[in-house]
């Protein structure tokens, strides 16, 4: 029980530090005040530009979800294409440290 609690606590503490890991990957960013010009936009672009102007939290959630979705879909699509190349994609033949 104590081991589980310690593991859980450690994991929680580690997760709480993730922001610094991510934010270190660039200059420290301040919030940007930009209003997207929605007059020239239509459809999906209009939806996301509106979201950007009105609710940044949902916009941020959408950004992560869509990036993940794109990563997964493009990865799967490329897997499909690579399978047809005839290359063995499960092992390496070169042996070296």
């Amino acid at each position: 029980m104590l081991k589980r609690m310690l593991t859980g606590g450690g994991l929680g503490a580690a997760l709480s530090l993730i922001p610094t890991l991510a934010m270190a990957a660039g200059d420290k960013a301040e919030a940007l005040i930009v209003v997207a010009d929605t007059r020239v936009l239509t459809g999906v672009q209009l939806y996301f530009a509106d979201l950007y102007n009105e609710n940044m939290m949902i916009f941020a959630v959408w950004s992560v979800v869509l990036t993940t979705f794109m990563g997964v879909v493009l990865g799967a699509l490329m897997d499909l294409i690579m399978k047809h190349t005839g290359i063995d994609l499960t092992k390496r033949s070169l042996v070296e440290h």
Binding site: P19, A22, G26, A29, A31, V34, A60, V64, T67
Partner: peptide
């Protein structure tokens, strides 16, 4: 990177 995408999106 995923967390970075979230925080930078929050900052617009």
């Amino acid at each position: 990177g995923l967390y970075g995408a979230f925080t930078y999106s929050l900052k617009g």
